[in-house]
Amino acid sequence: MTTVSVNLPATHYDVLIDRGLLDSVGSLVAKQWSPRKIALVSDDNVAPLYQERVAASLAAAGFDVHRYVFPAGEASKSLTVLAELVRQMAADTFNRDDSVIALGGGVTGDLAGLLAATYMRGLHFIQIPTSLLSQVDSSVGGKTAVDLDNIKNIIGAFYEPDLVIVDPNTLGTMTQRDLVEGYGEIVKTAALEGGEFWQLIETIDSPAELISNAPELSARSIHYKASVVMADETESGTRQLLNFGHTIGHAVEALANGALRHGEAVSIGTVAIMRVFEDAGLAEKGITSKLRDRFAAVGLPVTDPLLNSPQVLDKVKNDKKNRHGHLNLVYLTAIGHPEIKSIPSSEIASFLNLSVTN
């Protein structure tokens, strides 16, 4: 078993990574928590696959498990679904001595994490991510959120879990598209770190190789993200590096109205922003092609007609990370060498020059 430790000023938690950990959830959680009531939250895709199995393991370890299920999909990251979960927990008399476990992908982690952060001003919380995207990215770092209207992650909190349990065997039940989506964040992270991580990425040429390399991909991705989060938990400085590919990616994702997955949008956004910086002479020649080839190797999209929409610039200029009239754009001068360029919002259009569409 691989353990990645996340040490923050106010808390500490471990990320455990190994095949077959799902059957040991009860004993692992019992090392963290005394017997209590647990809200086990999943969507209606994951619940039939794993919820009963995990609930049985927790019950055998002495926990009183209440299973909650919500409709799968980004649309459930809403105040409406959050309120319904709160109502159900209140009806089941949950109190501040009880806890929440998120069992599922990124939407489940975001929603259940915010539920834990806000119910009675905060309950203890554990993440059990079941998708590649959540295993390598969203389950670590403490970001929880729901969407409002078409504004992604606008209502949320930084709320760290007590433990993250990663079982790569859950990837075997994913569709190819759902599996590959997570690779968008992996390539992004490997490009930021460089070195042996990027060398591993250069050997992966098919979705099947994602599953066979999943434990190492998760460990390396989480280790890098944990190091960044430990240096800057609330995204006031270097944690902004993790937004690489996300500024344009989030804009395209929002305009797609559900037609693009998050990891697909990150792939498109990463290639687009690096083309801008390479064309401006600020990045190593050929780096955009390197990144594009790694995404495309597993079938991720690397461009989209939505990049031609003038609404992309509107979304970019109004990005929620716009601070004091400036937007910080993350790019690479070379693989493993990230930089941040601050651009006044009034100059974003001329800087990007719509070259993202070329």
Rank of each mutant, 00 (worst) to 15 (best):
A145V: 06
A117G: 12
D98Q: 03
T170D: 04
E74P: 02
G73T: 00
V86P: 00
K143N: 12
D137P: 12
G104F: 03
P161F: 10
A112H: 11
N95V: 02
G142T: 05
A75I: 02
Y68S: 01
G172W: 01
L85Q: 08
G109Y: 06
T170Y: 02
V166Q: 07
P129S: 13
P168E: 10
L132W: 10
R87D: 15
L132K: 07
Y159S: 04
N169Y: 10
D137F: 10
T108A: 07
T173Y: 01
S78Q: 04
R67L: 12
L171F: 05
G105W: 02
S76Q: 02
T93S: 14
L133V: 13
H124I: 00
F63V: 02
L148S: 10
E74N: 05
D64G: 10
V107R: 00
R121H: 13
P71D: 05
S76H: 03
P71R: 01
M89F: 04
M120A: 14
H66C: 14
L85N: 11
S134N: 03
L171A: 09
S76L: 02
I165H: 08
A90Q: 13
P161W: 03
R96T: 03
V69G: 01
D167A: 07
L171V: 06
T144E: 13
L171R: 03
G106R: 00
M174Y: 00
V86R: 07
V65Q: 08
Q135E: 13
P71I: 02
L85I: 05
S99V: 04
T175L: 03
G105N: 10
A75S: 14
R67I: 11
M89V: 11
